[in-house]
Simulated assay, not measured.
Amino acid sequence: MVRIIEKEASCLGDKIYLKAVLTSEGITVSLAGGHKAHIGAVAVCDPAGLVSLHAFPGHKEGVLAESFAKKIFENTRYPVVVSAGIHYDNISPKGIEKVLAACNSLLSKFLGELDIIS
C-alpha cells in the first residue's frame, strides 16, 4: 500500500505545504513553504518511538520536525521521517506564532484524515 496525502495552508501571504507518503511500513512527511521552501531539519522516529534529529546549521525547524515526528508516531505507531523547511524573510515573533499555528492546523487535518483511512 502507498497512499499520498497533501495539505496546504495560507500564512503570511505564502503557502505552507504538508505532503505525506504512507506505506505499510512507515510514513514520510515533508513540511515546506513560506518565501523559500527548503530542508532545514530532518527528524526520524524509529519503530520504538525514539527520535533522532539533524538540523542544518542556521536552521530552526528542528523543533517542528521533531514534534511532528513524535505526534505522528503516537497516532500511528509507524516509523516516521519528517523533513521541515519553512522560511519567511524578516519574520517577527508574532509571525512565527502564525506559522506554528498554520503548521499545527495542517498536522491536525493530516491526523484527522489518517483516522478516516485507517
Rank of each mutant, 00 (worst) to 15 (best):
A43C: 04
A32S: 14
A102D: 10
N90Q: 15
T23M: 10
L53C: 07
L64A: 13
E113V: 07
I39V: 15
L107M: 12
S108T: 07
G62V: 05
I27M: 02
K36P: 01
K7R: 14
V80P: 00
I16N: 03
I16E: 06
E74A: 15
I16T: 09
I116P: 04
I4K: 15
A43E: 04
E97M: 13
A9R: 13
A9Q: 08
R77A: 10
A9H: 05
I16A: 05
A69M: 03
T76W: 00
I4T: 12
K70I: 12
P93C: 07
K94M: 12
V51S: 02
S10Q: 14
V21W: 08
G112W: 01
R3H: 08
K15R: 13
C45Y: 00
G85F: 03
H54F: 14
L64C: 10
D46W: 02
E113K: 09
P79H: 10
A55G: 11
I39G: 06
L53Y: 06
S52C: 04
I39A: 08
S30V: 11
K71Q: 15
N104R: 05
K109I: 06
A20Y: 00
S24Q: 14
A41W: 06
I86H: 02
D89V: 09
S30H: 10
L50Q: 13
A102G: 12
Y88D: 12
L100R: 07
I4G: 06
A9Y: 03
A55F: 09
E6S: 15
I16R: 01
L18F: 04
H54M: 12
K70T: 05
Y78H: 07
H38I: 09
L111Y: 01
S30G: 13
N75F: 01
G26T: 04
P57Y: 06
L50H: 12
F68M: 04
G40R: 02
I117T: 02
V51I: 14
I116Q: 05
P57S: 12
C103S: 12
L64R: 11
A48T: 13
E66N: 08
V42D: 03
R77D: 07
S108R: 04
C45A: 03
V29N: 02
I72P: 00
V80K: 00
R77P: 01
A65L: 05
E74R: 09
T23L: 07
G13D: 10
S92K: 10
I96R: 05
S83D: 08
F68K: 01
I39P: 06
Y17M: 12
V21G: 08
S118G: 08
K70A: 06
V21S: 10
K36H: 13
K94Y: 09
E74N: 12
L106F: 01
E25H: 14
V80H: 00
A84M: 03
V42G: 02
K19N: 08
N75E: 09
I39D: 05
Y17R: 14
L64W: 08
M1R: 02
V42Q: 03
Y17T: 15
V44W: 02
T28L: 11
N90W: 10
G33Y: 06
K94S: 14
K15L: 15
I39T: 15
E66Y: 03
V2A: 04
G34D: 11
P79S: 11
L64P: 02
K71P: 08
V81L: 11
D115N: 05
G26P: 04
D14C: 14
L64N: 08
A55V: 10
G34I: 11
F68S: 01
G33N: 07
A55R: 12
